[in-house]
Write a protein that binds this DNA or RNA. Structure first.
Lengths: 257, 257
DNA sequence: TCTTATTTGTTCGTATGTATT
DNA sequence: GAATACATACGAACAAATAAG
């Protein structure tokens, strides 16, 4: 067994060089890389090899390529989503998003809309309802400086949504969870499943990333005090631009259950 | 603007077909795909196009390609790492790993070793020590059915490690945290930062995945009751084969601070 | 050990298609 | 319409890892 590093493929070496140039600011955020024919001449390789090298940077989220225009360096602020346990669930919500983005000097914004859809198999199981039964879904889209950074869709059974009065875009002070609490179904138990997968083409289009570029998917289930699920939220966000933070304090031994 | 879906590239269509065949069991886990020349003839495309299609499946973690041998279908059980807040930090540790793997019908195993290393910039900052000062690192490697699934390295200052007596591989009942508690430095506050990034070549080699295939990196900081950091653990695991679960229960309003 | 066949990895030159300016 | 830029694809060639003899 030989510990000497095998010679790296040209496309990988060129990707390294370009990555380093971006890191050092030779190509500033928002500015284009030299065109493929130019890079092809500079490194004395075929344009196909340059295309593959740039493909590496694309899949890392470092550049955004637009056909007919060029490859542009992204500015990728890493946004931290803090889920502090002892302060309750809403800390990971909209208010915290605002604070975090302003801390980074970015302008937070979002859109919201409400629809009715039949329950998918997965959502039906999580909400403990029949497949195909009617759900109310609140779709939110988050932006940082006009750039899309997160998809968040919350599903509730139509029945519960109507009882709690959250079938309109404006859910009033405290949001959906406060309205649920008003009718005695306030969520108390929370489960959050985090996975990492390639973006679907629809997600990629909205988030302006490559299909198959890694995204975080968070499935957030809120249940009431009788442990009945009341709402499911699916978050999808580009993997390279988020950090998920969880913090908590252990109870002293005696108080644990 | 034209809403008609552009025709998909051939390599992507072929990747879809192969992915579907794997899903349907046409190619069972552990068995090889047909060779590239064979697929090239079947789909009547060049071998370069097949190579690119298989590359898509590689980056998804669906197949493992070994040069000179072929492309083998992976068996990819999704392992859930549960971090239940109310039961304390150790629920995400080794015992929980054992239980989860047996639940999946897999055989859990791990290795452990202890080293001394100088503090890197990042670790030094998290542990609040000087860069380059001596640390004790406990390296653990987790396997499922002999397949590597996780890297976990825990760093402590040498001083503290010696006081607590955790400079050997065997740390005794309850593990490192119990020994820290014995000397009055038991961790109480926990912070966990989850990010998603491409595997480094070293990680890829150990985890038997592609370089740049997405991995979860978890930075876990444990602090004592005076909020002094006592240990930092870095976990690295293949993104496609883990699910991170967090669950908790909200305290009633009155008890929140 | 050496040889040969098989299999994947990379690269080139060339060509064609699509999106933008 | 023309020029520019990126996307995909092919055939050919060679390199590197593996397996069989």
């Amino acid at each position: 067994m030989n510990q000497i590093e095998a010679p790296r493929p040209r496309f990988a070496q060129i990707a390294d060089i370009l990555r380093d140039r971006i890191r050092r600011g030779v190509h500033a955020p928002g500015s284009p890389l030299p065109s493929e024919p130019e890079l092809s001449r500079e490194f004395d390789v075929s344009r196909v090899t340059i295309n593959r090298a740039v493909g590496v940077l694309r899949s890392e989220g470092l550049v955004q390529v637009r056909r007919g225009r060029g490859a542009f360096v992204r500015s990728v602020p890493v946004i931290t989503r803090v889920a502090t346990r002892r302060h309750g669930a809403r800390d990971a919500g909209r208010g915290a998003y605002d604070v975090e983005l302003r801390r980074l000097g970015l302008d937070p914004s979002w859109t919201a809309s409400v629809e009715r859809v039949p329950a998918s198999e997965q959502t039906a199981e999580l909400l403990n309802v029949e497949v195909g039964c009617e759900l109310v879904v609140r779709r939110r889209r988050y932006f940082a400086n006009e750039l899309p950074v997160q998809i968040a869709d919350t599903y509730l059974s139509s029945e519960l949504a109507e009882k709690a009065g959250v079938t309109e875009e404006n859910t009033g002070p405290g949001g959906t969870y406060s309205r649920l609490a008003d009718v005695g179904r306030g969520p108390v138990h929370f489960t959050e499943d985090v996975t990492c997968r390639g973006a679907t083409s629809g997600e990629a289009r909205f988030l302006e990333i490559e299909p198959n570029q890694p995204v975080f998917e968070i499935l957030f289930v809120a249940s009431d005090k009788e442990n009945r699920p009341v709402a499911v939220t699916r978050h999808v966000m580009p993997g390279h631009q988020w950090r998920l933070r969880y913090d908590w304090t252990d109870e002293p031994e005696g108080q644990t259950e």
